[in-house]
Design a protein around this nucleic acid. Structure first.
Lengths: 174, 174
DNA sequence: CCCAGTCAGTTCGTTCAACGAACCAACCGC
DNA sequence: GCGGTTGGTTCGTTGAACGAACTGACTGGG
């Protein structure tokens, strides 16, 4: 019997990947980690996610080596969550999925753009810089506010910070 | 209140994409469509998925323009499901996700490899042909049986057909 | 004509994941 | 001591996925 996230009858690495990152909310947590969100409370208010689900997903992402925990305070003990190198490689999935959706389902102008930090050019759908002609690593990507404006802009600290100024991926946001 | 697949508080194309393809089983159905699976019954036996879930997912994928229905028989009326051009673009998500998982979680040799059909070279993680130096479209990709052997090889018609001989993506399998 | 088999679903009761609300412990500062 | 903050945990409710059974419309064979 296949439960919740289990695809055990499938001899396939795609199925295995979906067991790891296919649960509800998981890839959005990873997205936020790319934005530089690191703390439980910040993920919580940006995602509007049930607390127990967030705790469960963060623990799972740490367990499978996509996120790592890092102590940022000893009294009381407080950890933050950062992408591992393995986690950073998920940009190759997250960016094309965003791009595909933006191209086909975007309503008007994008709310956000991703640019080559070195030269400022918007990435192409294959996450290359059309100006420099190079594959752009997420560490060299800057998230910018796009020309589109959402009907209901979010007011949580993460959304506000992302709107205020361009932000290099993987750098702490708050 | 966020329900099942809804991320309506997120002003983000990634979240929108996950509303469309993030439900359990959906990306595996799309994967099978790339293999050339087209009929309800073939998806059913290859995925071991509940019938109602398959019907629901196929209907949703048609509704959002990832799959299209095509009549293959009038009496009784019988439809098959093919990827649209928009659906075919999801290769840019599916292949990197498979590749990421294979690299980090694969147990030994891969059960499957994806090769540039024109020259036979295995694709690199960015779905390029290292020999020809070109980006390889899924229409020019051949799925091969890999050197690894699953502990419990599947015996459904789709799995058998995929094992028998290399198969060009998007071509009918059965 | 009847029956069995096949196909692509639909229905229904059960189980499990996600949900929202409440609570908890361990701090810190006033 | 109290209130606020943080990062959770617990618990009853709700909705999605599940497995089993059923359905209608054929086809082919006896």
């Amino acid at each position: 019997m296949a439960l919740g996230k289990n695809y055990e009858g499938q001899n396939c690495s795609l199925a295995r990947a979906l067991e790891l990152v296919g649960e509800r909310w998981t890839l959005l947590i990873v997205r936020d980690a790319f934005y530089g969100v690191r703390r439980y409370g910040d993920f919580l208010v940006h995602l509007d996610i049930p607390r127990a689900v967030l705790a469960d997903r963060l623990a799972s992402l740490v367990e499978v080596g996509i996120l790592q925990r890092r102590r940022y305070q000893d009294s009381p003990p407080r950890d933050e969550y950062l992408l591992t190198d393995r986690g950073v490689e998920l940009w190759s999935v997250i960016y094309p999925l965003w791009s595909w959706s933006e191209r086909h389902y975007g309503a008007g102008e994008p709310f956000r753009t991703f640019r080559h930090a070195t030269c400022g050019t918007e990435l192409d759908p294959a996450s290359r810089c059309p100006t420099c002609g190079v594959d752009v690593s997420p560490r060299d990507v800057e998230a910018h506010t796009g020309p589109g404006v959402p009907a209901q802009p979010r007011q949580d600290p993460v959304s506000v910070a992302l709107r205020e100024r361009p932000h290099r991926l993987l750098q702490p946001l708050l």
